[in-house]
Amino acid sequence: MSEIDFRGPVDSVALSAPDGAITLADESSCTKVLVRGARKTAAGIHLKVTYGRSRRRKDGVLVCGSRPGEWTLLAEPGRSGDVAESIPSEGFVSIVDITHGRAMLRISGRDAVGALAKVCNVDLADDMTPDGAVFSGSVAKVTCDLVRDDRDGERSYLISCERSFGRYLFSAVADACVEFGVDMPPGLSIH
């Protein structure tokens, strides 16, 4: 479907504070594939990580143990087909492409924790939520899946939600970042 552009729910460039201590970017177009199956299935054995943890596969795919018996595979845009095919499908295993169904954003930087602490009740301390942690929770009253996916030693979180909430979620998180120097882009508002 290369001739037809993927359109995500958020129409905003990446935002960042002048001091670089926080950046916020929409990554809704990333490939997202959901795998369901018992841990003892071939898919479960292949994917390996348990609920709450993630690992990056050699092909760059981030495998997240998103729930007991459920994995979310994240990759760069346009890889749904090859990611899905990489999963052994023997036994009772379901593979669902949720690329279109989930909005996703990435928030990074020193102040990311401070901004998230305004909208999310999960304890983001290093021991409670270390790099690679996968968890779910309410972000500005929307149920989200979160992955701590640090980049170059700097805090970074991927946050995804049901696509239809995407615009609202991005606005709400951007709003939480205003205190740390981010300008709210015109057209976005939580009100």
């Binding site: 359109r7 129409d11 500005a140 009253k141 929307v142 049901e162 609202y168 709400a172 939580i190």
Partner: peptide, 14 residues
């Protein structure tokens, strides 16, 4: 606090 009233929009709402 802030008014967090999640709003859902279809892909066609714009």
């Amino acid at each position: 606090g802030r008014i967090f009233e999640p709003v859902r929009r279809s892909a066609l709402q714009d």
